[in-house]
């Protein structure tokens, strides 16, 4: 069959090592106590990069039809819509904490 990408073993190992390294980084940054919101930003950013690596290389999106990539992006966009608009409510209530 044509068009099926075969990754070399070396390459796959490289990807895994990059992921493990980023795991180390994400733990390590908690030791230096980055101030609020930025610690969250950094943690999420690293997670996003790791996921992108998994999706691109382990899940072959890099070589795959663009539509599958579009699907992935769509799911993320709609998740962002869900949380984004919900936050418009929950962050801006007069009494943000239900005081029961």
């Amino acid at each position: 069959m044509s068009g099926h990408h075969v990754s070399s073993a070396k390459f796959l190992w490289g990807v895994a090592i990059a992921l493990l390294f980023l795991t180390y980084v994400t733990v390590a940054v908690t030791w230096i106590h980055i101030p609020e919101p930025w610690n969250v930003v950094v943690a999420i950013a690293i997670a996003v990069v790791k996921s992108a690596i998994v999706a691109a290389f382990f899940m072959h999106l890099w070589w795959d039809t663009k539509f599958n990539l579009l699907l992935l992006i769509t799911s993320i966009v709609f998740f962002l819509i869900l949380i984004g608009i919900t936050l418009l409510d929950t962050l801006y209530r007069i009494d943000p904490v239900p005081s029961f």
Partner: peptide, 22 residues
Amino acid sequence: GFLVWGHHMFVAGQSSLANLVF
């Protein structure tokens, strides 16, 4: 259709900002 769900919640106690946007 994904951007308008809050119109079911105008009097449910969501924030005025959300009401407006929805």
